[in-house]
Amino acid sequence: MDIPQLRYSLRQLRYFVVTAEVLSFTAAARKLHISQPSISTALAELEASFDVQLFIRHHASGLSLTTAGRDMLGLARNLLKNAEELQASARELDGGMSGTIALGCLASLAPPLMPMLISRFLSDFPGVQFDTHEAHQDDLLRGLHDGTLDLALTYSLDLEDDIAFMPLATLPPYAILPERHPLAGTSSVALADLLDEPYVQLDLPHSREYFMALFDPLGRRPVPAFRSAQPEVVRGLVANGLGYSILNFPLKSTRTTDGADFVMRPFRDEVTATTLGIAQSRSMKPRQIIKRFAEFCEAHVHALRQIPSSSGDA
Score class of each variant (00 low, 15 high):
residue 65 L to S: 08
residue 25 F to Q: 04
residue 105 C to S: 14
residue 49 S to E: 03
residue 20 A to I: 02
residue 53 Q to H: 14
residue 53 Q to D: 04
residue 90 A to M: 09
residue 56 I to F: 09
residue 77 R to D: 01
residue 29 A to E: 02
residue 48 A to G: 08
residue 23 L to F: 07
residue 81 K to V: 00
residue 9 S to R: 13
residue 94 D to M: 09
residue 68 A to S: 14
residue 52 V to S: 13
residue 27 A to V: 03
residue 14 R to E: 12
residue 75 L to G: 02
residue 91 R to S: 08
residue 20 A to T: 07
residue 95 G to A: 13
residue 22 V to A: 03
residue 49 S to I: 01
residue 88 A to K: 09
residue 88 A to R: 13
residue 69 G to I: 03
residue 53 Q to I: 01
residue 71 D to K: 14
residue 83 A to N: 10
residue 93 L to V: 05
residue 28 A to N: 11
residue 45 E to P: 04
residue 61 S to F: 12
residue 17 V to L: 08
residue 11 R to K: 15
residue 5 Q to G: 03
residue 34 I to E: 01
residue 75 L to H: 14
residue 19 T to A: 04
residue 36 Q to L: 01
residue 64 S to Q: 09
residue 26 T to M: 07
residue 25 F to Y: 15
residue 9 S to N: 05
residue 92 E to M: 04
residue 33 H to R: 14
residue 35 S to F: 07
residue 66 T to S: 10
residue 50 F to Y: 14
residue 40 S to W: 09
residue 102 A to N: 14
residue 88 A to Q: 11
residue 41 T to R: 15
residue 27 A to F: 02
residue 66 T to C: 08
residue 97 M to L: 15
residue 73 L to F: 05
residue 89 S to H: 08
residue 68 A to V: 01
residue 54 L to E: 01
residue 70 R to K: 15
residue 16 F to W: 10
residue 78 N to C: 07
residue 45 E to H: 15
residue 88 A to D: 11
residue 7 R to G: 10
residue 96 G to H: 09
residue 32 L to W: 11
residue 87 Q to M: 05
residue 92 E to D: 06
residue 81 K to T: 02
residue 77 R to H: 13
residue 95 G to Y: 11
residue 41 T to Q: 14
residue 66 T to E: 03
residue 31 K to C: 08
residue 74 G to T: 01
residue 10 L to A: 06
residue 105 C to V: 13
residue 57 R to N: 10
residue 28 A to I: 01
residue 7 R to N: 12
residue 28 A to C: 06
residue 38 S to G: 03
residue 101 I to R: 10
residue 74 G to D: 01
residue 82 N to R: 15
residue 98 S to P: 05
residue 87 Q to N: 12
residue 67 T to H: 09
residue 48 A to H: 11
residue 71 D to V: 06
residue 71 D to E: 09
residue 91 R to F: 04
residue 46 L to E: 00
residue 56 I to L: 05
residue 93 L to G: 03
residue 13 L to V: 01
residue 105 C to G: 10
residue 71 D to H: 15
residue 25 F to S: 00
residue 33 H to I: 02
residue 52 V to N: 08
residue 57 R to C: 00
residue 51 D to G: 11
residue 73 L to H: 11
residue 93 L to N: 08
residue 36 Q to W: 09
residue 21 E to N: 13
residue 45 E to N: 15
residue 54 L to T: 04
